[in-house]
């Protein structure tokens, strides 16, 4: 049985992430982006419910809400955190190397993904998964069928 989580947790985390990334774009703060990168890393390696925004949700928000109507698998949003981490790392490296335009593009992409999750419940990071696997198969294809 895969780990199940309250789906409102990732939505709350995505909202905070979008706000933080918007502030990064407005202020150009590499440090804030690096901090968000650490939050992504915690979400990817420890699971969203043990990452900072997840803990915030569990202690401050969830007690004020009723129990969730349904649970969702923890794996998809966790994978999306790893995708976010890649963009945050790319952004930090680009900022540090003076490639400001590249940094803005990376942070803008992460902001778009976080906003889509917060506002519409779409997990863009999750949807990249199949496209990624089409380019980089995880194992040799065993289903070749002559047709």
């Amino acid at each position: 049985m895969p780990t199940r989580i309250d789906p409102r947790g990732p939505r709350f985390a995505a909202t905070l992430t979008a706000v933080v990334l918007a502030v990064v774009l407005v202020t150009g703060s590499t440090w804030l982006l690096a901090l968000q990168g650490l939050v992504f890393a915690a979400g990817a390696f420890l699971g969203l419910q043990r990452a900072p925004y997840g803990l915030l949700y569990a202690t401050l928000v969830r007690p004020r809400l009723g129990p969730p109507g349904e649970l969702e698998d923890a794996a998809p949003p966790r994978f999306a955190q790893a995708v976010g981490l890649v963009f945050a790392v790319a952004g930090v490296i680009a900022f540090a190397s003076g490639l400001t335009v590249v940094a803005y593009v990376a942070v803008a992409a992460a902001l778009a993904a976080a906003f889509l999750n917060a506002a519409f419940g779409f997990c863009l990071g999750c949807e990249i998964y199949l496209a990624y696997r089409r380019l980089f198969p995880s194992q040799p294809n065993t289903t070749e069928v002559a047709s």
Partner: peptide, 16 residues
């Protein structure tokens, strides 16, 4: 940065 934020949010809303 502010212009980028507004543009990203507008584009993401349209896409959503």
């Amino acid at each position: 940065g502010l212009v980028v934020v507004v543009a990203v949010l507008a584009a993401a809303t349209a896409f959503g």
